[in-house]
Design a protein around this nucleic acid. Structure first.
Lengths: 350, 350
DNA sequence: TTCAGTAACTGGAACGTTCCATTAAATCGG
DNA sequence: CCGATTTAATGGAACGTTCCAGTTACTGAA
C-alpha cells in the first residue's frame, strides 16, 4: 500500500529520480518505455513513484511532443437521447485508444459552439468531433477550427466544409419508410416537422419526395409542414394537419420526438394511431419502443455512428497526411405498431 | 478576415511579439490582462494574433500557474437519461465559469473508472465529479483520487469517503411516494428493483419501510424484490411478483426504468396499470411523462443537482481551503396516471 | 528643477517533461 | 586481450508560457 505521503506539493520526475538514485532522464525512459533500462532499476523507480504518489504531467510532456491524446466532443443537444447514445459510442472508442474526451453541450447556440471549440483547442485537443448547432456556417467553422485540430462533422452534414463527416443515410431511410406506407396502401401522405433550412430535413424530405414520385404520386405541397423538431412542435403541426379539409391518412415525421408529439395530437382528436391514421418517425430512440402504440421508425444506430466517428478521427489524427473521408451509415426500417402494418395484415388475412 | 496563413507550425507568443515589435512579456500581459499596457499596443498585438492565427497554449501556461480550468466528469451510465440531464447541468455551470469538462462513461466498471480518473489527473484536471460505478470502495477511491484533485461524489453517496457530495433525498422521496399509495388505500405494497448492495437502494427502501411502519404496516419480506436497475430487470421481477399467490395491489419501484419495465409486465398479463394495479417510479426522467399511462414518480431535478455539484466543486477548487460539504437535494412527488389517483378521485366522487 | 511615483515595457529564470548527444561499463567475436 | 558493439545511464537544451526584478520615460507635486 503506497503511503499517502504528506505530499501537498506535486511530485515531479526529478524528485523520483533523486529518491531512486538515478537521473531524471532515466525516469523519463521508464515513463515512456522508449530506451533500455535495467529491469531492476525500472522496478525501483516504479516503486518510488508509487510511494511518493507521483502523477504524470501530460501537459508538460506535450510541450515537447505535440501528440496530446485529447479530443473534443461538441454536441448540439445532449438532452436528446440520440446524441447521448452517439456520445457513448464516441467515448468508448476513445477510451480504448487511451484518449480522453472533452465534452460540451451547445444547446444549438453557435456562439457557445465557437467558445468551446476555441477552449478545446487552447487545451491542446488534437481533434474535435462536432455535431453542429443549427445555423452553423462553413465560414464560422473555418474560424473556430484550425490547422492543428482535425475536425469531423457528425450527424448533420455541413455543405462546403472541408472536414471528415459521419452521417446516417437520411435520404435512403426516408424513402424506405415512405415506401413502407405506400405498400400499405396510403396515397395522401404528409411530411411533418423540421425546418426547411435544416440540411437533415432537406435530405429526409428528398427521400420522401423521391419515393412518392416513384409511386406516381406527387407530394402535395399543402401536406409539407414545417415545425421545430420538438414534441410541442410536432403536436401543433399535427393539429393543423388534422384540421385540413382533406386530411392525410399517413404522416412521415422528421424524427421520433416530432412523431410522438404528432401521436399525442392525433389521440387528442380521438383518432387511434395505427388504425385511423399512420404515423412514423426517424432515429429509433429508446422512447420509440416504449411509447404507445410503439413507433414505426428508421433505426440509424447512434452508438455505431459514434464509434465510427471516433475511429475516423483517430485515424486522421495519428496519420495526419490522411485525407478527409466521409461515412454514410445505414438506416433500417423498424416496423412496430404506429404504421398500422399489423392491422393491415390482419384485415388482409380476414 | 484573418488571412489563413500557411501556418502549419503552431504560432507562439514569441512570433506574435516579433511581428508586433514588442517583447514576449508584453504579449503575455495582454493575454492575461494583468499588467498595464497602452491601449494602442494592445490593439496591435491582438490584430497580429488574429492575422497569424494564434491559439493560446494553456498547457504551457499551466506549467507555471497550476490553476488549470479543467474538471472531469465521470458517469456510471450515460445511456440513462437521468445522468445525461445531470451532465447537462454540470456542463452548463462549468462553461459559464470558463471551465472545460472531460467526460467519461464507465458503464459501471470500476477498472475503467480508475483508469479515466488517473488520465484526467494526468491531464491536469483540478477536480472531478464522480458518479461512482456500482461497487466502488472507499479505498479504491482514495487511490484513484489524490490531494491535487478535488473530488465530489454525486448521486450515489459513498460511505467513508472524505469528499464533497451531492445526492437527492432518497429516503424522504421514497417515504413520500409510499405515503401517497397508502393514502389511496393500498395495504399490500411491494418494493421492486435495485440490488440490496446498492446504497441508493438501501436509502430508498428505508424510506419505504419507514412510511409503511408509520402506517402500522410491516413490509412483507416476500414483497421486497431485487433486480438489476434496467427495464428488463423490472419486467421479469414484476412478472414474478404477479405470479405470487397473494399479489400486491401497488408497487414502489426503485427508479423509472424499472417501473416502466414493470408496467410492461403488468400490461402483458392483461392488467390495466392505474386501475387494476398501481405502479410508481423514482427520478422523473423525461420518459416518465411520455409512457402510457404516464408514470407517477419522484422528481429529483437532475439538472439542478448537476448545477449544484459543479458549483460546489468550483468553490472547492478556487477556494482550496474550503472544507468538503454535502448537499441533499429535494425529492418531490409528481402525480400522474400510473398510481390510479385520478381513478380513485373519480370513484370517490361518483 | 528635482524627485518620487507610476505607466509601459523588457530580459531571463522557471515550470515538468522529452530527446539528442555523450559517456561508462559490459559483452563479444576472433 | 583488443577493438567493436551493445546496454545502461546521464546532462542539458528545448517546448510555450508566467512572473519577478528591472529599466526607461513620463507625470505631477514640492
Amino acid at each position: 500500500m503506497p503511503q499517502e505521503a504528506e505530499a501537498r506539493e506535486k511530485v515531479t520526475i526529478i524528485e523520483i529520480a533523486d529518491a531512486a538514485g538515478v537521473s531524471k532522464s532515466t525516469v523519463s525512459l521508464v515513463l515512456t518505455g522508449r530506451g533500455s533500462v535495467k529491469p531492476e532499476t525500472r522496478e525501483r523507480i516504479l516503486r518510488v513513484m508509487d510511494e511518493l504518489g507521483y502523477v504524470y504531467n501530460r501537459g508538460a510532456a506535450n510541450l515537447r511532443n505535440t501528440h496530446s491524446k485529447i479530443v473534443g466532443l461538441v454536441l448540439n443537444d445532449l438532452s436528446n437521447p440520440f446524441f447521448a447514445e452517439f456520445a457513448i459510442g464516441v467515448e468508448t472508442v476513445l477510451q480504448m485508444a487511451g484518449y480522453v474526451a472533452f465534452m460540451a453541450n451547445t444547446s444549438e447556440s453557435v456562439v457557445r459552439q465557437s467558445q468551446v471549440m476555441r477552449m478545446m483547442r487552447e487545451h491542446g485537443a488534437g481533434g474535435i468531433i462536432l455535431c453542429p448547432a443549427l445555423d452553423t456556417t462553413a465560414e464560422e467553422l473555418a474560424q473556430a477550427s484550425g490547422p492543428e485540430t482535425a475536425l469531423l462533422v457528425a450527424i448533420r452534414r455541413l455543405p462546403g466544409v472541408a472536414a471528415s463527416s459521419v452521417v446516417p443515410d437520411n435520404v435512403a431511410g426516408s424513402a424506405r419508410i415512405t415506401r413502407h406506407l405506400l405498400n400499405l396502401g396510403h396515397k395522401r401522405i404528409a411530411y411533418l416537422g423540421g425546418m426547411n433550412s435544416m440540411v437533415v430535413r432537406q435530405d429526409r424530405h428528398q427521400g420522401f419526395s423521391e419515393a412518392m414520385a416513384k409511386a406516381g404520386l406527387s407530394a402535395d405541397p399543402g401536406l409539407n409542414l414545417e415545425c421545430m423538431p420538438t414534441r410541442d412542435g410536432g403536436f401543433s403541426a399535427m393539429s393543423s394537419a388534422l384540421a385540413l379539409p382533406d386530411r392525410p391518412t399517413a404522416v412521415v415525421c422528421y424524427n421520433d420526438v416530432v412523431a410522438i408529439g404528432a401521436m399525442l395530437a392525433a389521440a387528442r382528436r380521438g383518432l387511434v394511431v395505427g388504425r385511423d391514421i399512420a404515423i412514423v418517425g426517424f432515429d429509433d430512440t429508446s422512447e420509440a419502443r416504449h411509447v404507445s402504440p410503439a413507433l414505426t421508425t428508421i433505426a440509424v444506430d447512434a452508438v455505431g455512428l459514434g464509434e465510427r466517428a471516433a475511429a475516423m478521427l483517430l485515424e486522421r489524427i495519428t496519420n495526419r497526411a490522411a485525407p478527409a473521408t466521409s461515412h454514410v451509415g445505414p438506416a433500417d426500417l423498424v416496423i412496430r405498431e404506429s404504421c398500422g402494418a399489423y392491422q393491415h395484415a390482419l384485415t388482409a388475412a380476414g
